[in-house]
Simulated assay, not measured.
Amino acid sequence: MPVLWAAALAVLALGVAWALVFSPPDWQQGETVRIMYVHVPMAWLAMGGYTGLAILSVMSLIWRHPLADLTARELSPVGAAATALCLATGSLWGKPMWGTWWVWDARLTSVLVLFFLWLGHAALVRAFDDPERGARAGAILALVGFVNVPIVKFSVDWWNTLHQPASVTRMGAPAMHVDILYPLLVCTLGYTLLFAAVVLARTRAAVMERRVRALQLARARREDATPA
């Protein structure tokens, strides 16, 4: 945990300073391009995090691994936060570029659906008194909702949308200058490390909480069994 937190904060500090101070403005977007240094990493984390949630759900349903259930439970609020930041920064970028805060095109709508899937999973796993039932229900929802991830990814290719197509992950050379691409990649690495650190910290806290509850329950049973 200390190494992960230190790496996340160091890389993120470097990336943010590079992006906000030393990288040049875009020739078309001007200073507005700096929103991209948060928006793009959050979009990748929203999709990548949900892919991780689907993998944890498979581990939960097939192998019944309790740590997979616990990690999925703690992952969904963090994934929802990343998706919310993606939507918010996208709206901030869309207003000066498109002249509107929101359009119901395929990319934006599918990301909004992804946000609701994150919220739905976070609520569903906590809606049952029995944690195992909640974990099973949340795993099924996560796997069904995973069909939305490729829709988010390829929506700009499948439909005519206002959102620009892939600029970094397309085949061949990225469609942006290295002075913008490199700080974007450093920011992405920093946000990814921070995302992992937060999820790991939440999972560790949940494991410790479960152990404390088990010890309290065992102590209460021993006290009940002890004759007066």
Rank of each mutant, 00 (worst) to 15 (best):
H163F: 08
L124Q: 01
F146P: 03
G120R: 08
L108E: 00
G99A: 08
L108S: 03
E132N: 13
G134M: 12
R133N: 04
A123T: 12
V103L: 11
S91A: 10
T109C: 01
A106V: 05
A122V: 05
L141F: 06
R170C: 04
W158D: 03
V152F: 02
A142P: 00
K95W: 15
A175V: 08
A175I: 03
W158C: 05
K153I: 14
W118I: 04
S91Y: 08
G99E: 12
S167Q: 11
K153W: 09
Y182A: 07
L112R: 09
K95L: 15
T100E: 10
V168D: 06
D129Q: 14
D105Y: 04
L108P: 00
A135Y: 01
V113K: 04
V147G: 15
A166L: 11
V125N: 00
V168G: 00
V103A: 05
S110P: 01
L143I: 02
E132H: 14
W101R: 13
D130K: 04
W159I: 06
F154E: 00
D157Y: 13
R107D: 01
A139T: 02
W158A: 04
R126P: 08
P131W: 06
M171R: 13
Y182H: 10
P131M: 06
A173W: 08
T169K: 10
H177S: 14
W158N: 08
Y182T: 09
K95V: 10
V156Q: 03
V103I: 14
R170Y: 09
V156M: 09
L117W: 03
R133Q: 15
I151W: 09
D105P: 02
V149N: 05
W102Q: 04
Y182M: 13
R126Q: 15
A127C: 07
P183F: 06
S110K: 03
W118R: 05
V125T: 12
W118D: 01
N160I: 15
V113T: 11
V144R: 15
L181C: 10
F154M: 09
V111I: 09
R170N: 12
L181N: 04
R126T: 09
K95H: 14
P96K: 12
W101M: 15
A122R: 12
V168M: 13
F116S: 02
T161K: 04
A106C: 06
P150Y: 12
D179N: 09
W98R: 10
L92R: 07
L108V: 08
T161N: 02
G172N: 07
T109H: 03
M97K: 11
N148A: 00
I180N: 13
V103C: 07
V125H: 05
L141P: 00
A139C: 11
V168R: 02
